[in-house]
Design a protein around this nucleic acid. Structure first.
Lengths: 145, 145
DNA sequence: CTAGAATCATTCTAATTGCAATCATTCGAG
DNA sequence: CTCGAATGATTGCAATTAGAATGATTCTAG
């Protein structure tokens, strides 16, 4: 029973499979965030933003961490600010930049979200060592931006 | 100089970093497809669809490979069909399903696209062995859907 | 056999996202 | 110093995407 279809050469095929897996896992993680964030009254990108807000940072830095355009980060920050989880402070030493700072309510919400995200994580099937290997390989591929 | 911010516990932090890397690489691959597909007059998702159309398949299968909703796969298939790269054939043995089949022009375009995608791939920094390791780890994490 | 659940594709609508343009501020060459 | 380029954030708009509802077909328990 030979394969009728598929590429002749193995390399593009392996590449395609790998791309599909990476995209699939990204979507899977996104779905995981979506479900947990929803229980806290947040959208998916609000959840991602909260996850990435490890401390005061500029809007551009948040956008980079979220791998999205700054305009979207502005949009998400607006919503978080409206809900009282985030404040825009003047950036010390750079008047065009703004520093995004979580309010106490935002900090508390973030901790709750992190706990939810850590439970039943899509990455749980991998051991710590495997996760480290994965991180090392991904970091090698993603260096150039 | 201790870190003022960041989570106390190392595990959620490692998890967050890993999620960011996966998402970042997915976006990087998407951008790569976007640029190459544009040179062929295709959008990003048209490029992804063409990459995944390894042979005749159902619309649902295409959606799964693209990790998107079937409604979007319908949209993309419409565009590819309008441009003469794709045809919807009746599915043998299942009258509700349709079989997506590339036209000769579509097959030729796909081969050109694959060549473009393989050049300067974001995954190129990794050796074949590393790509295999990556694929194995990702497959372990993405099994459950 | 048959009725209800499930599946496949499509449509419609709303939400999300990317992209180009703009304004304010900062940087850097000369 | 100063002027043009670069940077940070925002806005408006267009394109993409997800999600729910619909119609047609298939599956399955009884």
């Amino acid at each position: 029973m030979g394969r009728v279809i598929d590429e002749r050469e193995p390399q593009p095929q392996a590449e395609r499979v790998l791309c599909g897996l990476i995209n699939g896992l990204a979507k899977q993680i996104e779905a995981h965030v979506r479900v947990r964030a929803a229980t806290l009254g947040l959208t998916t990108s609000q959840g991602v933003a909260l996850r990435e807000l490890t401390g005061p940072m500029t809007l551009r830095e948040l956008a980079e961490r979220m791998s999205c355009e700054p305009s979207n980060a502005t949009f998400v920050a607006d919503r978080l600010e409206e809900q009282g989880y985030l404040e825009r402070h003047p950036h010390p030493g750079n008047r065009r930049a703004k520093q995004l700072v979580l309010t106490p309510a935002g900090t508390e919400l973030r901790e709750r979200l992190l706990r939810l995200l850590f439970e039943e994580s899509p990455l749980a099937p991998l051991s710590s060592a495997e996760q480290e290997t994965l991180q090392r390989l991904l970091a090698r591929a993603v260096v150039d931006r």
